[in-house]
Design a protein around this nucleic acid. Structure first.
Length: 318
DNA sequence: TACTCGTGGGG
DNA sequence: TCCCCAAGAGT
């Protein structure tokens, strides 16, 4: 954007930008740290992956499972998973299909495949120990910017900006004065998250978990419990009068009748099957043969289904 | 960048 | 009922 192409002044932020209108980002950060971390000390849920005995592997498993899946549904699968595969090498020694089967109905089963792949990489490249460096974590299958930062921070106490949907929403409201963050994570959000990070490594890790928990329990997407929020008196969105989000409408994800639904039905059959499943059995899960074939092809291409000679299918054993 | 990729609970 | 959306990653 340049002065010559500028036809209108920059669009004003809705409400206050606390970082600009009430002082520096540093000042904003210092005002938020204590109340948020103290709230976390008092209200944090006792989740199994937060216990010391979970270890880095437990943290990593939980982060994979929690990608787009609510805590309540993850809990039982997490317990079974770590009981069966207490170390990365234990999972790496199994067939990938067993990971897909144990994944159950958590959704997005490619995550199970990637977790298996991550375990194999950890066993091969890292001596069986979850790596500590952000770059090494990021190189693992299924580990993106968020998960790498989360494992480094939660498992190893490092200082990283951990930007998940909860944290993004908390910052959007408390600091930027908007009801919701942008659809995709922006450079401005990353910059803000880094600027808000406490200097002290241990405190930064605590802050990361605390802001995430605040978003999950209090500063929720639909009906935030602002009366229970430890920073409601500092919240830029509150101070602006809780303006409604007006920008591009957030597109709703359709599901009924999509390939995803068909894939889910096909894989559900294969998860339950002890022996390879004949084509005819799979044909019964969906009427449209064209879409059914496309979905099955997709599952095979993704490595979630293994076709065997004779027109039978199973979860991948190789 | 925008789209795909499951599943199910709560409002 | 229907709709929203939940600790994202990969392409």
């Amino acid at each position: 954007m340049t002065a010559t192409t500028e036809t209108a002044p920059p669009e004003p932020e809705p409400g206050h930008d606390a970082a600009e209108s009430t002082g520096s980002v540093e000042q904003t950060a210092r005002a938020l740290h204590s109340p948020v971390v103290e709230w976390f000390d008092a209200h944090a849920r006792d989740l199994p992956w937060r216990r010391p005995e979970a270890g880095a592997w437990g943290v990593m498993v939980s982060e994979f499972m929690l990608q787009q899946t609510p805590v309540n549904r993850v809990l039982p699968v997490y317990e079974q998973w770590l009981s069966r595969w207490p170390r990365p090498a234990d999972l790496a020694a199994e067939a990938p299909g067993e990971a897909v089967r144990a994944w159950g109905r958590l959704g997005y089963p490619r995550r199970a495949l990637r977790l298996h792949g991550a375990a194999a990489a950890i066993a091969e490249r890292h001596g069986g120990d979850v790596p500590k460096e952000h770059a090494q974590l990021l190189a693992l299958p299924g580990v993106g910017e968020y998960t790498a930062a989360a494992v480094a921070s939660f498992a190893y106490g490092q200082r990283h900006a951990v930007l998940d949907t909860n944290v993004r929403r908390v910052f959007a409201r408390a600091v930027t004065g908007r009801q919701y963050p942008p659809n995709a994570t922006t450079a401005a959000e990353r910059k803000l998250a880094r600027a808000l990070l406490p200097e002290d490594e241990q405190t930064a890790a605590r802050w990361a978990a605390a802001t995430m928990e605040l978003g999950a329990l209090v500063c929720t997407a639909r009906a935030p419990s602002c009366s229970k929020c430890p920073i409601t008196h500092l919240c830029a969105w509150q101070l602006a009068g809780c303006p409604e989000h007006v920008d591009p409408p957030r597109r709703t994800q359709t599901y009924a009748g999509t390939d995803r639904q068909v894939r889910g039905k096909l894989l559900a059959v294969l998860r339950e099957a002890v022996t390879p499943v004949p084509q005819a059995t799979l044909d019964r899960v969906w009427n449209d043969s064209v879409q059914r074939a496309r979905a099955l092809d997709g599952l095979v291409a993704d490595g979630l289904v293994e076709p065997l000679p004779g027109g039978v299918y199973r979860l991948p054993m190789t």
